[in-house]
Design a protein around this nucleic acid. Structure first.
Length: 441
RNA sequence: UCCUCAGUAGCUCAAUGGCAGAGCAUCCGGCUGUUAACCGGAGGGUUGUAGGUUCGAGUCCUACCUGAGGAGCCA
């Protein structure tokens, strides 16, 4: 085949020309002496047309009865057709079958419905389907957009180690690993390390995987997930909220601009995304408590929320349902938050922190805070939380040598993707999800 | 760890305590505009595992295994 190779997503540029597509057979419809193979190549799908009286007999025979997901190189003429979902069809002139899938062991993912367990056992094949491919392309777009956002604003990428000697926040469960003669753990946040790089470089961010051995079984949890974590020297809580809302607006706008067709493939209601523009509503924890208590009085919430506790999942869902945009809740009681958060100078019982809740019940996608600047207060908090002082010696050094106000936040990529794509579960947002009961494939 | 639900053909699901079934997939045949194509035919089963109740168990009981959704915790 001598015609130029192109991708299905670019095929409209070749209308009237003969081109070569390299991909797989997605589906085949036969109507006697007329065959309709649908090809996919990773960039999209296109229907081919193979009339028996218009092609060499060997081409017709190669397509007739061809099995789903057989790999093929196809040559044909691109023709605009109103009947085609993508606007174009391929009048096939030549086909080379690289590997024919056996009828004895057909491709397991049919075009009909399947259950979660079966699909996750076959995740390595499930990702070939148009919907999953659209999700993975959108995830890639969101990651690229997040990096563009920070790179273009003077942030330096400083990735944190994945193997760590101790917990970043004493509470969550860690995955232990043997590290020669020592015990190491997989990181659960890069935050403490990027506080160090922020003191070196000013504005920094990390992007990488994090691991939490929590026995959580919900649509929002993975044991291995990816975070983008910016950290900024001299930043205040208001600076962080500005940064968070601008980041999220940027990500959503990029997807609307570049991945609109994929969002439609997923069935996403894009009108809801089009409302996502900074600024976002900002409410204090005190105001959130008031709203939750009103919600309970109206019967929308089962339990009455009392000041002082952390927000539960139903509470977050209720609060986010009151707004069309993500809502930023700030100044939680210090007692329910991490040891490193700066107290509010106005009210010492509050922490200068913020959680960003995505709309439509997707829950917390960002959590951040101003960090403690004082050496003495940080040491006091480490002792209060019963953390091993020796492990945090380097972290305390950051306050000993030129401590400054600073802060940052972490955004969970999978939750952000799940919300933007409108998915039921975060397991579809990552190529190979790791959950409580799943380590295969 | 706790609560709830589920497990029957390769897949998705039916079956009042009384002969284990359908659609899709596969195979055979038909069809020149199909859109999860359609039409006709065929093959395909240790009903998650181990016990128990019963004349008789896919169905009822007990334990266990596996998975899902949720709580807690979190991004």
């Amino acid at each position: 085949m001598t015609s130029p190779v192109t991708t299905i997503s670019e095929i409209g540029k070749h209308e009237g020309q003969t081109v070569t597509i390299r991909g797989w057979l997605y589906n085949l419809r036969e109507s006697g002496k007329l065959l309709f193979p649908i090809f996919r190549d990773g960039s999209g799908t296109i229907q081919g047309v193979v009339p028996k009286n218009a092609v060499p007999p060997e081409v017709f025979d190669a397509v007739k009865g061809l099995t789903q997901e057989s790999s093929v190189i196809v040559e044909g003429k691109v023709r605009a057709d109103k009947r085609a979902p993508g606007g174009y069809e391929l009048d096939v002139s030549n086909v080379q079958v690289l590997q024919r899938v056996s009828e004895d062991d057909p491709f397991p993912i049919s075009l009909k419905e399947h259950g979660v367990d079966f699909l996750m056992d076959n995740r390595h094949l499930w990702i070939r389907t148009p919907r999953q491919a659209a999700i993975l392309r959108t995830r890639a777009e969101i990651i690229k957009a997040a990096r563009d956002f920070f790179d273009d604003r003077g942030f330096v990428l400083t990735d944190a180690p994945i193997l760590t000697p101790a917990a970043c926040e004493g509470t969550s469960t860690l995955f232990p690993v043997d590290y020669f003669d020592e015990q190491a753990y997989l990181t659960q946040s890069g935050q403490l390390y990027i506080e160090a790089t922020a003191m070196a470089l000013g504005k920094v961010y990390s992007f990488g995987p994090t691991f939490r051995a929590e026995k959580s079984k919900t649509r929002r949890h993975l044991t291995e997930f990816w975070m983008v974590e910016p950290e900024v020297a001299y930043a205040t809580l208001d600076d962080l909220m500005d940064l968070a809302e601008n980041l999220i607006s940027f990500l959503v706008n990029r997807c609307l601009e570049k991945r609109r067709a994929d969002l439609q493939t997923m069935g996403r209601d894009v009108s809801k995304l089009e409302k996502i523009e900074a600024p976002f509503p900002r409410i204090t924890y005190d105001e959130a408590v008031k709203m939750l208590q009103e919600g309970h009085a109206k019967g929308a919430l089962e339990t009455k929320f009392e000041w002082g506790g952390d927000l539960g999942s139903p509470d977050e869902t209720y609060l986010s349902a009151q707004f069309e945009k993500p809502v930023m809740i700030h100044r939680y009681p210090a007692q329910v938050k991490a040891f490193y958060m700066e107290p509010d100078p106005q009210r010492a019982e509050l922490a200068l922190c913020v959680d960003v809740l995505a709309p439509e019940g997707y829950g917390e996608i960002i959590g951040g805070s101003q960090r403690i600047g004082s050496y003495d207060l940080l040491l006091k908090r480490i002792r209060e939380h019963g953390l091993p002082e020796e492990s945090f010696k380097w972290y305390l050094d950051l306050r000993k040598y030129g401590g400054v106000p600073h802060g940052g936040f972490g955004m969970g990529i999978e939750r952000a993707v799940a919300w933007i794509c409108g998915l039921e579960h975060v397991r579809e947002t990552i190529p190979f999800a790791r959950t409580l009961h799943r380590l295969y494939p």
